[in-house]
Design a binder for these strands. Structure first.
Length: 476
RNA sequence: GGCGGUAUAGCCAAGUGGUAAGGCAGAGGACUGCAAAUCCUUUACCCCCAGUUCGAAUCUGGGUGCCGCCUCCA
């Protein structure tokens, strides 16, 4: 079974066939670095990172490019307000982006290009569009001429009349058509600007993605992703520009993917509604694994609702996954016996069946919600095996751990077992207290035993007693 | 007004025409010094109405609710 993706170009699921066998070119719209990114931005970063991981898991060599937009109106305003340069602002929030993205387990792109570092490419892209007859210069601005582009509106499935009915027509318009959009904006006092054939100025919003994706991925790329709200105008414009610039007649993008919106308490997130939540704030309140779990628990195209309840439910789900891993690790240390009469072949065939189901779910438009359902079936299989057998052979542990690791490399919602991975002084102290507590319990000194347990609990360490001894983990 | 999405248990959520995955929460039980974890048991008139079909959560038509885009917000 091969990968099928829902392509917004055709609004149908299509079999994924890359341009070059075994290779995938993937461009994902990145943040405008004028502030911390918000929890709604985090959704595409997380879900498309999972798609990237899945493609790699399936053996593709993926080139993943995600830009930083470091010049636009918002950047300029914020920099003015903070009395710093636009570049300083960008440096700061690129660093903050990386911090939050790393915390959320989002892998760094292969290339993270910045608009301001690609001004020559942007200018030459604009020049090619003009040369090809699809843009015009107007008082130092350059506009894309949408009337010259018959395909305009084909991505968002709107006809020009309907789009124009909603378009804002500003007084003193320098455009020929209200839907024409700026490729290059003439310099305004106090704003960063660069020399160009049309005078000093700066790039428009959409053109950077065209210039940079073409530079790093070529004129015809496999996958381009972003939030649904980018479909129009951003992606529509990008496609028009890129294809007008390349002049090859090839589509800019073969598969357009858009994630659904994230709502907060059933409302659109907006600064005016006062319900704006940055990823930074969310990370203070909820474990990163829980945020990922939440993002992946619904299909990426469905809307999701960010509420305290949904995050708490997600955290509880993560706990179940993590408990399975730590129970497994603990049992591997205490109950491993290759003479066990555990029926490995049956276990293996059950794991294989689930593996097939997992792949089927991921291949179906990366249905992470269904894939997570399978992961919980794997957990159940491991848990019941642990429950029903006094001792288990090496093969059981190897297969189980490999399965959890494999799924977690794709979804990133389990994480490591604290007792396995931490070996510092604190871990040693925990082990020492556990030993002391075990002796107290043996002596039926439950007062001391419970005291140790609650002391550790206050430090975020949870103890669990098993017939084979006491195991520990950190609270999420 | 134009375009599009969505409606499944208390909550989150998957679902390929053949009598509803999974998670969270709840109830009862096993295990436990007590906990915790785990396991067992238990919880659905699939928004409404009509139609197609041997058979519909799934397809068609019509309602209703919610949401998004058309405003450089992922």
């Amino acid at each position: 079974m091969s990968l099928v993706l829902f392509n917004d170009l055709t609004r149908t699921k299509e079999k994924f066939t890359p341009i070059n066998k075994g290779h995938v070119s993937f461009y994902s719209c990145g943040p405008t670095v004028y502030d911390y990114f918000h929890i709604g931005n985090a959704r595409p970063f997380i879900v498309f990172d999972v798609l990237r991981r899945w493609l790699e898991h399936e053996g593709y060599s993926v080139k993943f490019v995600q830009n930083f937009t470091d010049i636009d109106d918002k950047m300029i305003h914020r920099a003015h307000r903070e009395n710093i340069t636009v570049q300083q602002l960008a440096e700061r929030f690129i660093a903050e982006y990386n911090k939050d993205a790393d915390a959320l387990g989002i892998r760094r792109p292969d290339v993270a290009p910045r608009a301001t570092e690609h001004i020559p490419e942007i200018i030459s892209t604009i020049q090619r569009i003009i040369d090809n007859g699809h843009a015009y210069v107007s008082e130092g601005d350059v506009y894309f001429d949408i009337r010259s582009w018959p395909k305009y509106g084909s991505l968002c499935k709107q006809n020009l009349e309907d789009l124009e009915a909603g378009a804002r027509i500003e007084p003193g318009e320098k455009k020929r058509d209200p839907l024409d959009f700026a490729l290059w904006k003439a310099e305004k006092p106090g704003e960063p600007s660069w020399p160009s054939p049309w005078g000093m100025g700066r790039p428009g919003w959409h053109i950077e993605c065209s210039a940079m994706s073409s530079k790093y991925l070529g004129d015809n790329i496999d996958i381009h992703s972003g939030g649904v709200d980018l479909m129009f105008p951003h992606h529509e414009n990008e496609a028009a520009q890129s294809e007008a610039a390349s002049g090859t007649g090839k589509p800019f993008v073969n598969y357009w993917l858009h994630n659904g919106f994230l709502l907060i308490d059933s409302e659109k997130m907006a600064k005016s509604l006062g319900n704006f939540v940055t990823a930074r704030e969310a990370l203070k309140k909820y474990p990163p694994l829980a945020i990922r779990f939440f993002m992946l628990s619904a299909h990426y195209r469905s809307p999701i609702n960010f509420t305290p309840e949904s995050l708490e439910q997600a955290a509880a789900g993560v706990e179940r996954l993590r408990n399975c891993r730590s129970d497994l690790d603990f049992a591997a240390k205490t109950r491993r016996d290759n003479n066990s009469d555990f029926y490995v072949d049956k276990f293996k065939s059950e794991l294989d069946d689930l593996h097939a189901k997992f792949s089927e779910a991921m291949n179906d438009d990366f249905n992470t919600a269904a894939a997570m359902g399978v992961l919980f079936d794997v957990v159940y299989l491991i848990n019941t095996s642990l429950k029903e057998n006094e001792s288990l052979p090496e093969d059981f542990f190897t297969m189980s751990k490999n399965a959890l690791n494999e799924y977690d490399e794709i979804l990133g919602i389990i994480g490591s077992d604290d007792a396995e991975t931490e070996h510092d002084e604190e871990a040693a102290e925990i082990e020492r207290l556990i030993k002391e507590r075990s002796e107290a319990r043996k002596a039926k000194n439950f007062a001391r035993s419970d005291e140790i347990r609650s002391e550790l609990k206050a430090r975020g360490i949870v103890l669990e007693d098993t017939p084979q001894g006491t195991k520990w983990k950190r609270e999420l």
